[in-house]
């Protein structure tokens, strides 16, 4: 019983943290293009410069969160630029 309660609590806590992260990213629509260039560079730098697997995973999670934020909050050309820039930067890995 204790195990079940612990498992459920952990799952709820993890889900809440995940949801909190998504909400934390609020993008400025007025500055979307600059943001697409800046964030793609910043996030891909984190990925390529990661010193270990844990840093790499956490950088990837952040990139995923920004990808989702760009897709859902802005979309269109800025989102495409964000993805294209990430691809250009990561292809030089």
């Amino acid at each position: 019983m204790k195990k079940i309660v612990l498992t459920i609590t952990s799952v709820v806590a993890l889900t809440a943290c995940g949801a909190g992260d998504d909400r934390a990213i609020i993008l400025d629509e007025q500055n979307a293009l600059n943001l697409a260039y800046d964030k793609s560079y910043e996030l891909c730098e984190k990925i390529t410069q990661a010193a270990n697997y844990e840093e790499f995973k956490s950088a990837c999670a952040l990139l995923g969160a920004y990808d989702e934020a760009f897709r859902t909050q802005i979309g269109g050309e800025p989102y495409l630029i964000f993805i294209e820039e990430c691809n250009a930067l990561l292809s030089d890995k």
């Binding site: 990925i47 495409l80 993805i83």
Partner: peptide, 25 residues
Amino acid sequence: AAEEWLAQQQATLAKHINIMERAWC
């Protein structure tokens, strides 16, 4: 065409990440 291009770019990004993940592991 724009949707197809976006989907292709998304797939490329996923591929880059996957290659790096495999390299780390």
